[in-house]
Design a protein around this nucleic acid. Structure first.
Length: 481
RNA sequence: GGCGGCGUACCCAAGAGGCCCAAGGGAGCGGUCUGCAAAACCGCGAUUCACCGGUUCAAAUCCGGUCGCCGCCUCCA
């Protein structure tokens, strides 16, 4: 089955065919580094991380570029408020970006270009646009002339008339047309600035992505991603700049993730209803957040509530328990029995096909997770019986080995969801083991009061005892309230 | 006003014409296990997909309309 992706340009799912067979150039719009990242950012970067991982899994040679916008109005403003240098502030938040996303299991991109390090390229591109009459200088600013580009509006499906009707466009006397947008902005005294043929200034927001994507991935990108709020104006403007300059299609597939909403509203900086990732990490294992995000298709709206996070925690825990059962089954002695579950021979391949079909369908992680759960349900049934028996027939063991290898590939490598429970705090585990052994001894001697007291003691340390067919064990308790 | 999207069980969420009298997760209920309890595991659970019409042999899935919700059109992932 071919991989199909939903392309915002065409508004439907299309077979995925990169420009160069076997190679994928992927550019994802990064963050403006002036504040901490929140769940909305997490959704975007986790989604594209999984998309990238799956493409790699499918054998593509993927080059992933993600920028940092390290110069813009908000950064300048924030820096001024704090009496800090804008670039110092930007570097600080860049560092924090990596801290939170590393913990979320987001693999690092191949390259993270910064706007301030690509000014030269931007000036060159702006110059080319002026030469081609797609842009014009005006009192130290430079604007892109949207009416000079026939395809303007093709991504967001708007016509110039409808955009005017909104009457929310910024009216400026410097612009020839209200729909024109800035490529270069004249700097005010005291602001960071770079020399240019049009005077000292700094780049507009959109130009950096056109320049950096072109420089590192070529004129035509296979995939360009970002949140749905970037469709207009950001990506629309990027198309205009890049295609007006190169004359080639800018992007083959535009992919956009849906929003995170809170109390029925978009989670965003301006509404002040965001939860930063750092805050959330204090309450939940980052893997729970990742699992929560992947439980919904990346294009659907995702509503954040504490209840849903709890559901996600329970779900992830079930996933981890199932994997543990699988591991324990593989440790059992092999028996010579021939009494095995029917359909074992086809099982591993069938499970794999279900997962891949789901992912091939526009990276449907919700369905793919469903496939994993269906598989684990069967593992659990087998576990229920065989753990009691204490042995597994060779044929069953063979199938389980394949399943175990497969779940590592899908869950860990593709979805990036670690199936290992959060590690015990250092020094904790020895203590727990001792208590567990003490309780077990007490139970064997029928000193139940002692056993129960030790159980409470273990609970106080944050662990829960499970009496399983294979003996007692302690697992870390939820920290969610 | 223009554009885009959404509405599936108590909650969440897959599903883009027949495999659907609709996955999967959470909660609930019943059961297994257990010294007890918990956990874990197993089982049950929508004849129905916001509503009304239409197309079709066949629709949650396509078309039209109605209602409700959200997003973009201004910085935003």
């Amino acid at each position: 089955m071919p991989l199909r992706v939903y392309n915002t340009l065409t508004g439907d799912k299309q077979p995925f065919e990169p420009l160069t067979p076997g190679k994928v150039g992927m550019y994802v719009c990064g963050v403006t580094v002036y504040d901490d990242c929140h769940l909305g950012h997490a959704r975007c970067y986790v989604s594209f991380d999984v998309i990238r991982r799956y493409l790699i899994r499918r054998g593509y040679d993927v080059t992933h570029v993600q920028n940092f916008t390290d110069i813009d109005d908000k950064i300048i403003q924030r820096a001024a408020e704090r009496g800090e240098d804008p670039l110092t502030l930007a570097r600080e938040y860049e560092k924090r970006y990596f801290e939170v996303f590393d913990r979320l299991g987001v693999r690092r991109a191949d390259r993270y270009p910064r706007a301030t390090e690509e000014i030269e390229g931007m000036i060159a591109l702006i110059g080319r646009l002026i030469e081609k009459n797609h842009a014009y200088p005006s009192d130290g600013d430079v604007y892109f002339s949207t009416s000079s580009f026939a395809g303007y509006g093709k991504l967001s499906k708007r016509t110039p008339e409808s955009m005017m009707a909104g009457a929310r466009v910024e009216i400026s006397e410097k612009k020839r047309d209200p729909l024109d947008f800035a490529l270069w902005k004249k700097s005010k005294p005291g602001e960071p600035s770079w020399p240019s043929p049009w005077g000292d200034g700094r780049p507009g927001w959109h130009i950096e992505c056109s320049v950096m994507s072109g420089k590192y991935l070529g004129d035509t990108l296979d995939i360009h991603g970002g949140g749905q709020d970037l469709i207009f104006p950001h990506h629309e403007n990027e198309i205009a700049q890049s295609e007006a300059a190169s004359g080639k299609p800018f992007v083959r597939y535009f992919l956009h993730n849906g929003f995170v909403t809170v109390d029925g509203e978009k989670m965003s900086k301006s509404l002040g209803n965001f939860r930063t990732l750092e805050e959330l990490y204090r309450q939940v294992d980052p893997m729970i957040l990742r699992f929560f995000i992947l439980s919904t298709h990346y294009r659907s709206p995702l509503t954040f509530t504490a209840k849903k996070l709890q559901d996600a925690e329970a779900g992830l825990s079930r996933l981890r328990e199932g994997r543990r059962h699988l591991t324990e089954l593989l440790k059992l002695k092999i028996s010579s029995g021939s009494d095995v579950e029917p359909g074992l021979a086809e099982w591993p391949a069938a499970v794999q096909a279900e997962f891949e079909d789901a992912m091939d369908d526009d990276f449907n992680t919700a369905e793919a997770i469903g496939a994993i759960f269906r598989m684990l349900s069967r593992v659990n049934q087998i576990y229920d019986r065989r753990a009691r028996e204490g042995t597994v027939p060779a044929e069953l063991s063979g199938a389980l080995k394949k399943i175990a290898a497969w779940i590592e590939v899908t869950a860990a490598d593709v979805l990036g969801v670690s199936l290992n429970a959060a590690p015990a705090p250092a020094g904790d585990s020895g203590e727990i083991e001792k208590l567990l052994a003490g309780r077990d001894a007490a139970r064997k001697e029928k000193r139940y009061a002692d056993a129960d007291r030790i159980r409470d003691e273990i609970a106080r340390l944050g662990y829960q005892i499970q009496d399983t067919p294979l003996g007692p064990r302690a697992v870390k308790k939820s920290v969610l309230t």
